[in-house]
Amino acid sequence: MQFERRADVSVTLLVVAPLAAITVALLLCAGLIAAAGVSPITAYGEMLRGALGSRLSITETLTRAIPLIFTGLAAAVAFRARVWNIGGEGQFYIGALVTAGLGHSLFASLPAPIAISLLLAVSAICGALLLMAPVALRLRFGVDEVVVTLLMNFIVLLFVGLMVEGPLKDPMAFGWPQSVPVDPSLRLPRLVPRTRLHIGLLVALVAALTVWIVQARTVFGTEMRAAGLSPRAAAFAGIPLPRILMSVAFLSGGLAALAGSVEVLGPTGYVTTTMSPGFGYAGIVVAMLAALHPAGVVAAAIFIATVFVGADAMSRATGVPSFIADVIMSVSLLAMLTALLFTTYRIKR
């Protein structure tokens, strides 16, 4: 068996590939659920009901999807230009930390819309810098950004721990390691009353649309794709690679930090070291399932959110551990990577 490159990749194939990957992943995980002694049909039924069965659960799922859209876009933008940003988790926490630190007192005197915009912008810039540093190291010294961004996640998380145990510790939290909350006037308004769903969803959708337009219609988007597809040819054609890659890092790091910032301004109000169930890493899965397309990112983020929110409900109803959500996500990624192989190559006989 040999593989040969497909001359052309049809759009249909690009849509079918993730759907097929998800189907395969769900079938494989059905085996695990059955092994746990529960009918997969019942389990998946509970999962769907838990995630999408009521108005409240739908809003809960969408709330969960918001940070995933941001981290998914961050990964998609970076991967498109072959900047391997594995540091979404760290950038998420930096965004959250900066927002909580400044939002407690500093910006509270300004009118809310201005203060919120400033908080989002400053947080995004901090996340951007966190990724620009490793990309600069790669451009200057050839340091592998995969290793640097991955390891920085742990450093950032420990730093957040230091802050919430120390200078930013909330004295009113009965000793829990959490930061002082942001000023209530700065919290994002609710989209649906009496739920946790906030207007961060609209911000995320606008971000996805913006990324789409930038990638498909602008000079920067074309240069960025060219740099990712063939750095040598891009450089030959006069595209300034260092500047393009630094701009991509700015965009990607900023988007991941926005996830953290919006999460603090939205549902939580403060920072803890456990506020992210791996949003940064899940963003990579979201980006891959989306085949790096911004519209796909939104869909994939909602799918992953459905799995996680639904898994909790399923776990309560059937006793299957909610870790199954992590398994489904991971198997989906593996299936998607395999599917991507088949969209680019076909088996040659």
Binding site: S230, A233, A234
Partner: peptide
């Protein structure tokens, strides 16, 4: 192939 054009564009 390597410098002149980008095949996937």
């Amino acid at each position: 192939h390597a410098e002149g054009v980008i095949g996937d564009l």
